[in-house]
């Protein structure tokens, strides 16, 4: 086998790759400084200006009412949806039980109830009032 046909061995290739690894140059300080300036320039202006005072302010306010309110908001926030669903269901159940106890769920009782009597008396009266008689 000639040299041309013979591949490098693994240790030879590793030696070349190791040489490449040592060839790693670090970025110069000026370039890093440019990158940092670009990073700061890319910040939303209001945030960049507000950041210093906000850091100081947040420490002061963390224990005050603002912090308490934010904490309560953070705790209550995830509960809003379930609460919004559960409350109407419970209201419906309570209303149903109340109507059942008063006998409004039974047709005959409903017709003879004070509510039905009141409606049967007042509705024609209101209709007459609206109709101008």
């Amino acid at each position: 086998m000639t040299e041309r046909d013979q591949p490098l061995t693994d240790p030879m290739l590793d030696e070349l790759l190791a040489a490449a690894r040592t060839d790693r140059s670090q970025p110069d300080v000026a370039f890093l400084s440019v990158l940092t300036d670009q990073a700061i320039a890319a910040m939303p202006a209001d945030r960049a200006v507000a950041s210093a005072s906000a850091t100081r302010r947040s420490d002061r306010h963390r224990s005050g009412w603002g912090g308490l309110l934010r904490r309560a908001e953070a705790i209550a926030g995830p509960l809003l949806w379930p609460t919004g669903l559960v409350v109407p269901v419970l209201c419906g159940l309570w209303l149903g039980a109340w109507a059942d106890a008063r006998g409004y769920l039974d047709g005959g009782a409903l017709a003879g109830s004070d509510l039905a009597l009141g409606l049967s008396y007042h509705l024609p009266e209101m209709a007459a009032l609206v109709g101008g008689y």
Partner: peptide
């Protein structure tokens, strides 16, 4: 922290990330 406007975080991130990114791009 950078997203909240912390300039020091910008400098630290550049110092941590730029050398590796630059080296890879050079290769």
């Amino acid at each position: 922290r950078y997203a909240q406007g912390d300039r020091a975080a910008a400098a630290i991130l550049v110092g941590r990330l730029a050398p590796g990114a630059l080296s890879l791009a050079r290769r």
